[in-house]
Amino acid sequence: MARYILRRLIAMPFLVLGIVTLAFLLTTVTKGDPLTAIVSDRQMNDPEAVAAAKARWGLDRSLPERYLIYVGNLLSGDLGTSFITRRPVAQDVLFRLPATLELVIAAMLVGTTIGITLGVLAAYFHNTGIDHLARFFALFGSSIPVFWLGLALLYVFSVKWGILPGPGRIDPRADLPAMVTGFMTIDTLLAGKIRLFFDALWHLILPAFVLGWAVAGTISRLVRANMLEVLDREFILTARAKGAGEFRVVVRHALRNTLVPTLTVIGYSFAYLLTGAILTETVFSWPGMGSYAVDAARGLDMPAIIGVTIVGGVVFLLTNLITDIAYVIANPRVRLG
């Protein structure tokens, strides 16, 4: 096991270098001219202005040269400067990361709670109406486009019924608390603004549900399959024979034995959540990394696109590594390949 973990850790720097290289190369095959994002239309006819812009942004250098400079800068934590915001990309990303994390964690909580509950119910009431409904809920969640679901729920709950707030993280007229963690719910609490805390929590409900639904579906299917297997075992019979109540049998005896695979799927769901967050943030005007990536892609802001892609790739790589290692530690029988 130690050898497996060591091997995975040694591979990491190479994978990160691969991510950087691939992200850099893919965005240089551009057909669109990145200059249009920097130089105004009128200045495009002025060769001097174009040359000056090229020199300022390093676009006059050769590709290998640009790559080496990029990797060199990266080692000192510099991801370049955004064409659009004119701020360092690393700074932009760090500023926006907490909003995305807050949304993803909330979605994970929603997804896990609904998913485990549904999975247990579906297995316990195996092949009944409840089971079929749970299956339908799961399939629906992985089929519905998150951006459309977001729009539809915003329309119904916010515009029609007015019971949930519109897009954004908090009431736009609110007196914002100082940024400490970047998590709106935590920062409002730290500032002692209880009313704002509930406002932030209120704003989280819809986007977290939209993003969490598909994860809830995946988790419910997996919990159901594992529960079905466990519920047939003899120790469950023993527990029942000893007079344990049904709730105790299901939760204490059966569910506990399905936790390892469930934790694994929660870890891997992170990839889905990162992808889904891009679209959810766009629909809910959520100022996170996802909407930053979309703005960058629309505006041909190459440094920002490469930066966000690299950060996303590394975050994704790390969560998968942690999940794999946790799985191996929790489940030593697994064959290591």
Partner: peptide
Amino acid sequence: SFPPMLLAMAVA
């Protein structure tokens, strides 16, 4: 190693 949507966005 990339989240699929992010990589597709960058290339597109």
